[in-house]
């Protein structure tokens, strides 16, 4: 029982990080139909800022802010330079563009920083753990869970009550009609990118504080997972992205905990088979996006 609870906490921590990343992907996808594979590089940028701040002796709390700000800025610049010119192009064009952005950034990191993994100075407290009855929970896990909850509440409020949040939901459902109302396409899309950068920055801080290192390909795996989570939840659906992120986190952690040791190397294939199984029964994901529903009616 203790092992189960322990693993459940781990699943919430990992799933929460996936959920934040998947949300970022879903926001951009729902507003402009772009699957942004360069989302992972936003994480990496935030990771390098944390590293640089550590080297420069900047207090960790302050470097977190800088790292997140850098990811937001990078996301806005990315949209302006790389994605605005292909905004009305086909989904395939945008997808390839995002691959190109991702590759270019990876090469820049490799050549101008280092191809090798760099250590990031993370405060001691994050690697300590706290005892709750029979449970031993890492401070970084608690931080991840609390951060995820705070972020989800913040985003929910923003999308429900802020003018731009409501406009983003409207645009996700019907972009042309939203424009007719006077909602500027640039505002909505830049807003979606800024928020996705914000989420990627937060996820990067959580990711790096578990590993205490950053490398040029750091963003690749988590964003690939987040992409799977977004599809699992229903591509373009914000609630779906959160549900998919948590579900994937749970699948991965429980498989790692309960699969017999001889089967552990098949963990990822088994996890993906489970994802496929869900999609067979719910082809549009757990919580399909409103745009999809609107098309069907």
């Amino acid at each position: 029982m203790d092992l189960f609870l322990q693993q459940t906490v781990n699943a919430f921590a990992l799933g929460g990080t996936y959920a934040l990343l998947a949300l970022g992907l879903a926001m951009v996808f729902s507003t402009m139909g772009l699957i942004n594979f360069a989302h992972g590089e936003l994480m990496t940028i935030a990771g390098y800022i944390l590293m640089a701040c550590g080297l420069a002796g900047v207090p960790f709390a302050f470097s977190i802010l800088l790292a997140i700000a850098a990811a937001v800025l990078a996301a806005i610049v990315m949209e302006r330079i790389a994605f605005r010119p292909v905004r009305n192009a086909s989904g395939a064009t945008m997808l390839v563009t995002s691959f190109a952005v991702s590759m270019i950034l990876q090469v820049l990191f490799q050549n101008f920083i280092s191809a090798r993994s760099q250590a990031v100075l993370v405060p001691e407290i994050l690697s300590e753990s706290v005892r709750f009855g029979g449970l031993v929970i890492g401070v970084n896990k608690i931080a991840a869970i609390v951060t995820t909850i705070v972020m989800l509440i913040f985003l929910d409020r923003f999308m429900k009550h802020h003018r731009i949040g409501i406009a983003m939901r409207a645009a996700a459902e019907d972009f042309s009609v939203a424009r007719l109302m006077g909602i500027r396409a640039n505002t909505v899309i830049a807003g979606a990118f800024a928020l996705s950068g914000f989420l990627a920055g937060v996820a990067a801080v959580l990711w790096v504080s578990q590993r205490a290192s950053v490398d040029p390909l750091m963003g690749f795996t988590p964003v690939l997972k987040a992409f799977i989570a977004a599809i699992l939840g229903g591509l373009g659906s914000l609630r779906g992205a959160v549900a998919g992120g948590f579900l994937l986190g749970f699948i991965e952690i429980y498989l790692a905990a309960y699969l017999p040791s001889g089967m552990q190397e098949f963990r990822d294939p088994i996890a993906l088979c489970l994802v496929v199984l869900v999609l067979i029964f719910r082809p549009n994901g757990l919580i399909p996006s409103p745009a999809l529903k609107a098309e069907k009616v």
Partner: peptide, 17 residues
């Protein structure tokens, strides 16, 4: 083409954007 996942009030608010 109303925004189906927005409330009536939110739809009108968007009209006044």
């Amino acid at each position: 083409r109303v925004f189906g996942t927005l409330s009536v009030q939110e739809n009108l608010l968007m009209g006044a954007y």
